[in-house]
Nucleic acid binder design. Structure first.
Length: 889
RNA sequence: GGACGAUUGGCUCAGUUGGUUAGAGCAUCUCGUUUACACCGAGAGGGUCGCUGGUUCGAGUCCAGCAUCGUCCACCA
């Protein structure tokens, strides 16, 4: 008790988050309650309770967390804390992603910057040690940042996409897919990044608009168009649409001789293919199958030769003759010059705009190449539960069946469209950092297994796997798969996957693929896609723009709770969020408001009362002692509890927060706390406040935990308290009548309005006369205190109004504020005029509606409601008019 | 070239299945230090919901078209 009182006195006037946050997090963490097993052991959670599980989308170990991560942590922590408080077996698994290419590239850059060395200077093993060191540092930073955000992650289950356990999962998955023929090795056209010297997947491409010269070249009897003359050396097929009448004389397979071309005379074969667009250019084209996906497809269809023109460093091969060995960008002008000198350039369009493919990471221009690589076959048929299916079908079914719901649902269409256009997934990379392909070779033999072959002489495939191959296993590899662990049995499928819509394809789709294929089970029941966090002008936050907001800086300045609220409230799933510092500041103000409500409670209420947990039942048992204000606040509280729960259950976190903020500030603080200063119902005040702390805890865990322990003592922990139960609140308080106190709120507001209109200082105490039925309850004390009224006089409804007063009408009561000496009749008249005009407008609109077809066609209850509104408005109008007329001229 | 999204007071956004006179936060203006809070309190002003049609008794909400902005997808050589 002494401790608590001291604690209370120590509560600073303004909330200072930095004093509390680290201590509170340590307390949570050391309590062990982030781990659902501990919750069960200590009786906080029932062993047979339903589960709620989710995985943290593992941040890349490339650096530090940004506001997007902060927003993800906030939303997920809300769901996790909410379910934990509701008694679910709640598990939230942390982890990090090795992000193969991104991390390797970053370390390579640092290595060059600091030591002017490349990875080849160090060699594979030494370089990988560097990367691991870097990854470890990044990891430590990320873990620290997650904790700073208040994330209640079960650190005892932390995972890493490249650790031993996940390595086993990756190799197991690969082996199964390999033996089922889903994974194959083949020479296919791939996206080659000459700068990073690796392939990248289709999804990692970005299209960039480029203005280029477009050349029309003479090619025998034809004219062909190209923006890339440097690739044309090996072109020996001329392709046209079979229906193109301009070229009807040419037949498929016909060979055209004596074509003068860049390096001499060649012959070309005519190919008819429907892929050619007759309306583009001249309607004929030559093809370069080795360096273009479309051309590759044509060549495949007609079984044509394919020749490599550009090497993997981006230089021309001997086929280019005199240009051999030149970089393609240097060669282009020279090649065009030669074509010109030979008279082969018909014309040039200098303003041709087209899209070039670049690596979304690093922005290096992609050069398509044919290369022997590992692929996941998305169209291969295999048996599943007695029927033939494909990976594409599995992915489609998971969502189409509704087993996996997508929030917001419009992303479903995008998801299906992506699957429809999906090509085989190239999963091998020529980088060093990552899971090495689990395949060994010896004298033409191929060996694939989870463990290396035992006898010597085998050489492992040097390539590593696409980082998303390991991320795709994340929902179950983190739970122990391929072992059949209790965690896997208990927590899979996970309940929700919360992540950014920008990795819908990269990650969400791949997780569905992997889980459906390997486990025959969905990875998660719902996927909630959040938007990107942008700056106030809607720009992406980037270092080069200098508009990056570091979440930890904001935490330090405004408190983590304020940062969390600013990321959650005003944000809708799938839509980007614009965030400025003022928004965070406004939630800092709110945090402080809650803090000060707490200070008031501890200041005004006896510690015996505020240091006990007050239950719904306890309040329910003293119903007879409740005042009108008590009933009003309890009723509103029960509505709030139910709204907040409904919103959270439906993933409407923003609305849940808004409802809570509105209740806390505009209802509880502005009205009930003020009334408490008069009525002093400590139990209800404390009960409502404690309920608010419970309700707010998932959103703003630090300040609520701090306040809770200030009230109840540090041996209590809010995090594991029960969340307010909507049904219970409703059955206890839902039927409470609120009209009486609403009336008082209206009267006080009217007095304040009149004061403001007449510019009467708050220090000046006034008198009011209220005309009403004798049995109407008027809360004199409250009106006097909140309206700064000296005395309330009551008269009958038909008694005449006092002179020199301003009037307010509400239902069947009239209030006259005495304004002796200050009343300005012209001002009062115009005030009434204004209101009369507004009511008249309303009446005319409403009565014309009611006299029209509305009355016949609209549902009866809607009509009845409108009729009631009309009669209310009419009586109000007549009263206003009589007030107006009674004013002295 | 397709698809999707956005367009609501100065700014940032809510608005669930169409149903009172469209809400909030910030900003603005006026007043104010009443011992929880100036990171505050009280009051006020401010929107014909992008445009044009349609459906309906009734449209910010549904439909069609258009405009502007944005995002994603796409094999126009």
């Amino acid at each position: 008790m002494r401790d608590r009182l001291d604690n209370m006195k120590e509560l600073s006037k303004a909330y200072n988050p930095q004093e509390h946050e680290d201590t509170v997090y340590q307390q949570w963490e050391s309590s062990g309650f982030f781990n659902p097993d501990t919750c069960i052991d200590k009786g906080v959670t029932q062993p047979d309770a339903p589960y709620f599980s989710l995985v943290l989308p593992p941040p890349n170990v490339t650096g530090t967390l940004h506001l997007g991560h902060a927003s993800m942590l906030a939303v997920e922590d809300i769901m996790v804390r909410y379910h934990r408080m509701r008694g679910y077996r709640t598990l939230w698994i942390p982890g990090t992603d090795h992000a193969a290419l991104a991390t390797q590239e970053k370390v390579e850059r640092l290595l060059w910057h600091d030591e002017k060395k490349t990875r080849h200077d160090l060699g594979r093993d030494a370089f990988l040690k560097r990367v691991e060191q870097f990854a470890q540092n990044s990891h430590d930073t990320i873990v620290n940042q997650c904790k700073k955000m208040g994330a209640s992650l079960d650190w005892s289950r932390e995972a890493y996409t490249l650790d031993n356990k996940r390595h086993e999962a990756v190799y197991t998955a690969f082996k199964k897919m390999f033996s089922d023929g889903i994974i194959y090795r083949g020479a296919r056209i791939v996206n080659w990044d000459p700068r990073f010297q690796t392939t990248v997947s289709d999804d990692e491409l970005e299209r960039k608009e480029e203005r280029a010269s477009f050349y029309y070249l003479k090619y025998g009897p034809f004219e062909i168009g190209t923006a890339r003359p440097e690739t044309k050396f090996g072109d020996k097929y001329i392709v046209m649409h079979p229906d193109d009448e301009r070229y009807a004389d040419y037949t498929h397979g016909q060979v055209i001789e004596n074509i003068e071309w860049i390096n001499g005379v060649i012959s070309a074969m005519v190919i008819k293919d429907e892929v050619v667009d007759m309306n583009f250019g001249t309607g004929v084209m030559t093809i370069t199958p080795w360096h273009d996906a479309t051309d590759f497809d044509i060549a495949q269809r007609h079984n044509l030769d394919k020749e490599q023109v550009i090497d993997y460093d981006g230089k021309l091969l001997p086929i280019a003759g005199e240009f051999s060995g030149m970089n393609i960008s240097d060669a282009r002008d020279k090649i065009v010059a030669k074509l010109r000198s030979k008279g082969l350039v018909a014309r040039v369009d200098e303003n041709y705009v087209h899209n070039i493919a670049v690596n979304s990471r690093g922005e290096g221009v992609i050069e398509p190449q044919i290369k022997e690589q590992w692929f996941v076959d998305v169209n291969k048929e295999f048996e599943r539960n007695g029927t033939k299916t494909t990976l594409k079908t599995l992915m489609q079914n998971a969502v189409r069946s509704g087993d996996v719901s997508v929030i917001p649902s419009r992303f479903e269409k995008i998801y299906f469209h992506w699957i429809d256009n999906l090509r085989d997934w190239c999963i091998s990379r020529q980088i060093w950092f990552g899971h090495r392909v689990p395949v060994w070779y010896r004298n033409g033999e191929v060996y694939c297994d989870v463990h290396p072959p035992e006898n010597d002489g085998w050489v492992q495939d040097p390539d590593t796997l696409d980082t998303w191959f390991s991320s795709g296993l994340w929902t179950f590899s983190t739970l122990g798969w391929p072992s059949d662990t209790p965690d896997l049995q208990t927590y899979h499928p996970t309940s929700v996957l919360e992540t950014g819509y920008d990795i819908l394809f990269f990650w969400v789709a791949r997780m569905i693929l992997m889980s459906m294929y390997l486990l025959d089970e969905i990875p998660f029941r719902a996927t909630y896609l959040h938007g990107l966090v942008r700056d106030e002008q809607g720009r992406k936050m980037s270092k080069s723009l200098g508009n990056v907001i570091n979440p930890l800086d904001m935490n330090a300045l405004y408190g983590t709770d304020a940062v969390r609220l600013s990321l959650v409230i005003g944000s809708t799933p799938g839509s980007d969020l614009r965030l400025g510092e003022e928004k965070i500041a406004s939630f800092r103000n709110f945090t402080n408001k809650l803090w000060n409500i707490g200070r008031y409670v501890m200041h005004a209420v006896d510690s015996e009362t505020f240091s006990q947990k007050i239950s719904v039942d306890e309040i329910g048992s003293v119903t007879d002692d409740l005042s009108d204000a008590d009933r009003w606040i309890l009723h509103k509280l029960s509505r709030t509890v139910s709204d907040v729960s409904l919103h959270i259950d439906a993933f409407r976190f923003s609305q849940a927060g808004e409802v809570l903020r509105d209740f806390t500030w505009n209802t509880f603080a502005d009205w009930y706390v003020e009334v408490h200063k008069i009525e002093k119902n400590d139990y209800v005040l404390t009960f409502v406040f404690q309920t608010l702390l419970r309700l707010w805890h998932p959103f703003m865990p630090f300040v609520t935990e701090t306040l809770w322990q200030s009230l109840l003592g540090t041996e209590h922990m809010l995090m594991t308290e029960q969340y307010p139960n909507a049904k219970k609140f409703h059955s206890s308080f839902g039927s409470f009548e609120t009209f009486s106190f609403e009336n008082t709120v209206a009267l006080v507001s009217a007095i304040r309005n009149i004061r403001s209109t007449y510019r009467i200082a708050p220090s000046e105490l006034l008198t009011v006369t209220i005309a009403t039925n004798p049995n109407t309850v008027i809360h004199n004390d409250i009106i006097c205190r909140l309206g700064r009224i000296a005395s309330v006089e009551r008269i009958g409804l038909n008694d005449s109004a006092p002179e020199n007063s301003a009037s307010f009408l509400s239902g069947d009561l009239k209030m006259h504020v005495h304004l002796s000496g200050v009343v300005d009749f012209d001002a009062e008249r115009s005030r009434l005029d204004k209101e009369i005009a507004s009511v008249e407008k309303y009446i005319s609109g409403l009565s014309s509606r009611l006299s029209g077809p509305f009355a016949q066609k609209a549902p009866a209850h809607v009509v009845a409601k409108e009729r009631e509104s009309l009669s209310d408005a009419q009586s109000r109008l007549s009263q206003l008019v009589s007030e107006h007329d009674s004013l002295p001229v």
